[in-house]
């Protein structure tokens, strides 16, 4: 199913959208459309969101796509453009107790994650250091080991 989107509704951090987007964040309703750097200037592009939604996007000639541009907003879903490739951060807990603590933290912090064997792969929406800061005790104690931070 392709979503045909035209135009930019606004910025995802606009105060006017804050309440609705915050609500959607808590209901698993935010989809991110990662736009590769080389495609940023396009007025038409077809890309797939992090949830697998095929999006056919067009902009008016005088519109500029920006990081955080809100492309779609409905009661149950929003689609936001993000620049660059999806960065991820792979974490491996040393034992079950550490895994429980890591999972508890990741869940409460609303991190977007994927499970990969004995690792938790965090999909980053901001600078890595801000994520590290949230679980620094687990990292410094060695309960959770950083494997890599990759694109």
């Amino acid at each position: 199913m392709t979503m045909r989107l035209h135009g930019i509704l606004g910025k995802s951090d606009d105060a006017a959208f804050a309440r609705r987007l915050h609500h959607l964040e808590h209901h698993d309703g935010i989809e991110l459309l990662f736009v590769p750097p080389a495609d940023v200037g396009r007025k038409r592009f077809r890309l797939t969101t992090d949830r697998g939604t095929d999006c056919a996007v067009s902009l008016d000639r005088d519109e500029e796509l920006t990081d955080g541009a809100l492309l779609f907003l409905a009661s149950d879903r929003a689609i936001i453009a993000r620049f660059g490739e999806q960065e991820s951060w792979r974490l491996t807990p040393v034992d079950q107790a550490a895994a429980l603590r890591l999972g508890w933290n990741a869940g409460n912090l609303h991190w977007r994650v994927r499970f990969d064997g004995d690792s938790l792969v965090v999909l980053l929406d901001g600078p890595l250091d801000t994520y590290r800061a949230r679980i620094r005790p687990l990292l410094e104690s060695g309960e959770v080991v950083e494997r890599d931070a990759v694109r």
Partner: peptide, 16 residues
């Protein structure tokens, strides 16, 4: 093509 406006209503917009 339709464009969603801020309040969720739809507005007509010609696509280049």
């Amino acid at each position: 093509m339709n464009r969603l406006s801020l309040n969720g209503t739809m507005a007509k917009s010609r696509i280049a």
